Simulated assay, not measured.
Amino acid sequence: MGKKIKKIGVMTSGGDAPGMNAAIRAVVRACSYYNVECVGIYRGFQGLIEGDFVALTARNVNNTINRGGTILKTARSEEFRTKEGREKAFKQLQNAKVDAMVLIGGDGTFTGGMIFYEEYKFPSIGIPGTIDNDIFGTTSTIGFDTALNTVVEAIDKIRDTASSHNRLFFVEVMGRDAGFIALNSGVGSGAEEILIPEEDLGLDRLLESLKRSKRSGKSSSIVVVAEGDKIGKNVFELANYVEENLPEYEVRVSVLGHMQRGGSPSCFDRVLASRLGVKSVELLLDGKSNLMVGLVNNKIQTTDLDKAVKGQHQINKELLRVSDIMSI
């Protein structure tokens, strides 16, 4: 039986995602509900090393559920990758009498928590917060749904101008290693082609698909490209290749970039963050640690942190099949 948890720290680390504030709010209010102190850790693991802590109460997180970004800020920490840096972090937690942590972030965040647990047996629970949705052990990460809505709204507007000028638009979305945003937003926005890292479409097949669209009477097309797609070195090189080989198309490129990370979180992300935040606190109070909370079949389930980091969240093959049918 571990020692009783009296104070829990909460941090956000890695890339920001809409809904992180909702998760922070849930952790803080769950702590208040169970009469446990809560401290916010600014700037992720770097703030942990520097002891950049602030006491948080239920009233401190008023009006945060609707805010994008993270009120606790986020940063990457090279120092935490060193044994010396982690030793400093542990001493800061001891000095502040923090007994456990909730880590909101992605695989890098969870890896840090895992190593910290191995070295110091310090209890922590991970909450998956990333727009990429590339974490094993959950069907949806916090921020993914909001990012999808942002992308679809942007593509809808791009389609208006594509149709008006008979243009072919390549729209690059985030997803360096995973195509979840591209695939889902592509289907949702009616894209003619979707290029993702998991499926190598190939230049010849892309050209044939665009020719087929032209023959079928389409005067404009949208191609959604995940930034990690392997066909070309980058989306601009890909667009140039298509323009050279299909001169009948007037080609344009739109890179959506960091706008996908911002904005007020969707209702789905707010509810998901609230559920995961409450469960993370309850797990720590029950003596559980080194786990990630996630959503599977609309139920909150736990996954070992090492499995969450090493496991692979598979792309939806059925959705790929649907996208092929819809592009006819």
Rank of each mutant, 00 (worst) to 15 (best):
I5E: 10
K7A: 02
M11H: 01
T12W: 03
M20V: 12
A23L: 02
I24F: 00
V27T: 07
A30W: 03
V36D: 01
V36M: 03
E37G: 08
E37C: 03
I41H: 01
L48A: 02
E50H: 11
D52C: 08
R59A: 08
T64P: 00
I71S: 03
T74A: 11
R76L: 01
T82V: 08
K83D: 12
E84H: 06
A89I: 11
A100S: 13
D107G: 08
T111I: 11
E119M: 13
K121E: 12
P123L: 10
I125Q: 08
P128G: 08
D132E: 09
I135K: 05
F136N: 13
G137R: 13
G137E: 10
T138I: 14
T139Q: 15
T139D: 15
S140F: 14
S140Y: 15
F144D: 01
D145C: 06
V152A: 05
I155A: 05
A162P: 02
S164L: 10
S164W: 06
H165V: 05
N166E: 15
N166C: 12
F170G: 00
V173C: 06
M174C: 08
G175A: 09
V187Q: 14
V187E: 12
G188Y: 07
G188T: 12
G190A: 11
I196D: 00
E198T: 03
E199I: 15
E199A: 13
E199D: 15
L201R: 13
L203R: 10
L207Q: 04
L207P: 00
L210G: 06
K218W: 06
K218D: 13
S219H: 14
I222W: 07
V223S: 03
V223R: 08
V225L: 04
V225Y: 09
E227P: 01
K230L: 10
K230P: 04
G232Q: 04
K233V: 09
F236D: 09
E237T: 00
E244Y: 10
E244T: 14
E248V: 12
V251Y: 09
L256P: 01
H258P: 05
G262I: 02
G263K: 11
P265W: 01
C267V: 14
R270S: 02
V271N: 04
L272A: 03
R275A: 08
L276I: 12
V281T: 06
L283D: 08
L283I: 12
L284T: 11
K288S: 10
L291C: 04
M292T: 11
V293T: 11
V296S: 12
N297Q: 13
N298A: 07
K299G: 00
Q301R: 12
T303F: 09
D304M: 07
D304V: 04
D306S: 14
K310M: 15
Q314G: 04
Q314A: 14
K317T: 10
R321W: 09
D324F: 05
M326C: 08
